[in-house]
């Protein structure tokens, strides 16, 4: 009789059956939970996106791709690219937000890394703390700052940026500020851990070889911070695509993003299948990015995300 192959795990030799039963006892409940409440909902989301909405607003058969066609612009009333415009605007907002976050995060990360180790930890806590303050609270704070009677708005009015008795919100500007404010810590965190690991002797070597500041920064420092930067960009650009609270409170009806469109389908419009179709597109994009990222950095590299 063939002996079962033994596998080593934590100082024990286990048969495949033992290994599986141990794994089932420890990881089992978690895996079942993830399958039931993370994977299954995604499949249901996909399924819903092919259903039809009846007059009462219920999702019913037959199966159809109408929701996706409607999203692309072909509606019963003819062609209207309204949703594609929302998608374009959302991608723009997400990219600009990410860009400004990166631009602010770089100096901040280098600034923190220039301190004593103990001070660094403290400064990092100060960067993270605001991200734990409730999103709704941080967002409505901008409504207070940008209302028509606030000093900031008055200053802007004096400079002719807004008309008298007009607030700085709802506007694109308010949405951008709110978004950058929300996502900045998510980029600083992974970027800083990359900056902390920088091999500074390489910079000195570059400078000894007469590299200019620009060259040294772009060719020596940036490549070393790339893993952290990538993680930060993913943590900002993707969640920004689905952001709902900030444009809802600061953008008003003027700046609708994908997140608002989804929320609308599950609220006032009560068109679940169409809302499911939009959500599924966002989710598909998320999974694609995550998958590409995992392939590129491997499983260890993904720890930069948390």
């Amino acid at each position: 009789m063939k002996k079962p192959k033994l596998e080593a795990a934590g100082g024990e030799l286990l048969t495949p059956m033992q290994l599986l039963s141990r794994a089932a006892v420890t990881a089992g409940p978690g895996i079942v939970w993830i399958a039931l409440f993370l994977i299954l909902p995604m499949l249901i989301l996909l399924g819903y996106s092919f259903l039809t909405r009846d007059e009462l607003g219920n999702a019913v058969f037959p199966l159809t791709v109408d929701n996706y066609v409607r999203f692309a612009g072909w509606d019963v009333l003819g062609y209207d690219a309204a949703y594609l415009i929302i998608v374009g605007r959302t991608i723009l907002v997400s990219l600009v937000t990410t860009l400004f976050c990166v631009l602010i995060a770089y100096p901040l990360a280098f600034f923190i890394a220039a301190h004593e180790p103990k001070t660094r930890d403290r400064l990092m806590i100060f960067v993270i703390l605001p991200s734990w303050v409730n999103l709704v609270i941080r967002t409505y704070a901008w409504m207070i700052m940008f209302n028509p009677s606030s000093p900031i708005t008055q200053l802007a009015a004096t400079l002719g940026m807004v008309g008298p008795n007009e607030g700085l919100y709802p506007s694109d500007f308010a949405v951008y500020l709110g978004m950058i404010n929300v996502f900045l810590p998510f980029i600083v965190l992974p970027l800083y851990s990359a900056v902390e690991r920088i091999d500074w002797s390489q910079l000195e070597a570059a400078q000894d070889l007469y590299a200019t500041k620009t060259q040294a920064f772009i060719q020596v420092l940036v490549p070393q911070t790339l893993p952290g930067l990538t993680a930060g960009i993913i943590l900002t650009a993707i969640p920004a695509l689905g952001m709902f609270v900030v444009p809802d409170l600061l953008g008003g009806a003027k700046v609708a993003l994908i997140g608002n469109s989804i929320a609308q389908q599950f609220g006032a419009s009560r068109d679940y299948p169409f809302g499911a179709a939009i959500s599924f597109l966002v989710m598909g994009l998320t999974l694609l990015v995550l998958w590409l990222y995992a392939r590129r950095v491997g499983e260890k590299g993904m720890r930069d995300l948390l």
């Binding site: 993707i238 969640p239 689905g242 989804i262 929320a263 959500s279 989710m283 998320t286 993904m302 995300l305």
Partner: peptide, 10 residues
């Protein structure tokens, strides 16, 4: 990592 990255609303 899906819940870490996926937008809340989805």
């Amino acid at each position: 990592y899906i819940p870490v990255v996926t937008p809340d609303i989805v």
